[in-house]
Amino acid sequence: MSNPLPVVVDEAWLVVIDPQNIFASADSAWGSPFFAQAMPRIRSLADAFGERVIVTRWMPTADRSTSWGDYFAAWPFADQPPTDALFDLVPDAAGLSPRATLDLPAFGKWGPELESIVGHGGRIVLAGVSTDCCVLSTALVAADAGAHVTVATDACAGSTAENHAAAVHVMGLYPPQITLATTAEVLARRRASGR
């Protein structure tokens, strides 16, 4: 799953995409069956990145007059107030970052808010859920905006094993802007850089 391109993690930020109940719970229509496997890897990355961790949350606040209206009509269980427990972080994600969560009504989390933290052309390592939706959407838009993106593939959870593999394959088509690495590779490169 990893590629041979060098992953520079010096001054990188870890962006943990949407570790929320709606994507983690087995009771949720969007719950990833692989979230529990990814979460310990996410935690080990967050421990290594310290204060350079950003946690995002997908929020159901998009304008219903747009295509999001059709989306929520197709997924009415998710059309709840932002205060609903569905959108809370899972307990294991509490304390991953000293910062407040970055709450956005879009799959892709790259935009002015995130760029203002990591900087123009900044370096980010992505982890989280789901690989085939919010992680993929974030990676492609961030790369297009000039960010240096590493995806910690085994710290991401897909909706299915097949969809995870397909999303990783697509992101792997974008070197050198997007590189793929395992959690162990990211951590080893971070240690090698003295961080």
Rank of each mutant, 00 (worst) to 15 (best):
W110S: 05
V15M: 12
R195E: 15
T150I: 03
R195M: 15
V118S: 07
T150M: 01
P105Q: 04
V129R: 00
T61D: 09
R52M: 09
C156L: 01
W110L: 00
A29Q: 14
F72Q: 07
D63S: 02
P19R: 02
A36Q: 10
A38D: 03
W30L: 12
F87C: 05
G128K: 06
C134H: 06
S44G: 08
R189I: 13
I117G: 01
A74T: 14
V55G: 07
T153M: 00
T61Q: 08
F23K: 08
D10T: 15
A166Y: 04
A181D: 08
A142G: 09
V170D: 09
P19I: 02
D18C: 06
V141L: 05
S67W: 09
V55C: 05
P176Y: 11
S65E: 05
D92C: 03
A94C: 03
F72C: 09
F49D: 11
D79H: 13
A188L: 13
G50L: 13
T179L: 07
A152Q: 04
Y174K: 09
H148N: 01
L45K: 10
F35K: 03
G69M: 02
T61R: 04
V125P: 09
P6F: 12
N163K: 07
T183I: 12
D84S: 15
A142K: 01
A38Y: 02
S32L: 07
R41K: 14
Y71N: 04
